[in-house]
């Protein structure tokens, strides 16, 4: 099992009663599996992804990725773990504006002190069909291209787990479709595991498993 979340609660303090977003959520994902998580706006999808990525901690419960409990790691350990074991694709790409496509892709490798960052980043860009855009800056890329760079960045470390947050949410329908095709194809060919957050039922249908986040738990 690559991912295990057990009895996860997440509350946010606010005046009066705290806001309870996750209420005892549990999730298990096997290696190589693709899982879609559906949910309405405000249902807690983003909060769940942040917890799975170790970018936030649960109020109660535990999250294990590749056999390691995230909340037990120190901040520097968690950072290094994230660099080498997790790939994240954001809805809004979140590329670093000052770096070229190649530099953006090689960044997780460099942060994890992995060998040959540049050559591996170039191969990852080849996989997403952007080898001719290596020297381009994010503002010189179209939305679809920027998201493909983000996918290459997520895949370049050959992560155990890829977390994707509405990867086609900022793209038009046909570009979004093409990007998703490429993402799923690469995930499967690399034997990676994908947790995809979306509210697009059609997209979710292409994953191995579909779960819906309602009332702070997965169904």
């Amino acid at each position: 099992m690559i991912l295990s979340a057990r009895d996860v609660h997440k509350e946010f303090p606010q005046p009066g009663e705290p806001l309870r977003v996750l209420r005892g959520l549990s999730l298990k994902v096997e290696r190589g599996e693709t899982v879609a998580i559906l949910g309405a706006s405000g249902s807690g999808k983003s909060t769940l992804l942040a917890l799975l990525a170790g970018l936030d901690g649960p109020t109660r419960g535990s999250v294990e990725v590749a056999g390691r409990e995230l909340s037990r790691m120190s901040e520097p350990e968690l950072a290094r773990f994230r660099a080498l074991n997790l790939g994240i694709v954001f809805q809004q790409y979140h590329l670093l504006a000052g770096l070229t496509a190649l530099e953006n892709v090689s960044l997780p490798l460099e942060l994890g002190d992995a060998p040959e960052p540049e050559a591996r980043a170039r191969r990852a860009l080849e996989q997403v069909g952007l080898v001719d855009r290596t020297g381009h800056f994010p503002h010189e890329l179209s939305g679809g291209e920027a998201q493909r760079v983000a996918i290459a960045r997520a895949l370049v470390v050959e992560p155990a787990l890829i977390l994707a947050d509405e990867p086609s949410g900022s793209l038009d329908a046909s570009t979004g479709e093409a990007v998703m095709d490429r993402l799923l194809e690469l995930v499967r060919s690399n034997g990676a595991t994908l947790v995809l957050v979306t509210h697009n039922a059609g997209l979710a249908a292409r994953c191995d498993r579909r779960l819906e986040l309602v009332g702070g738990v997965l169904r």
């Binding site: 520097p76 950072a79 994230r82 660099a83």
Partner: peptide, 16 residues
Amino acid sequence: LREVAILISLGASYAR
């Protein structure tokens, strides 16, 4: 800050 957050999400520690 957005770029710093991206860096951290990609595996940079706060210190780095």
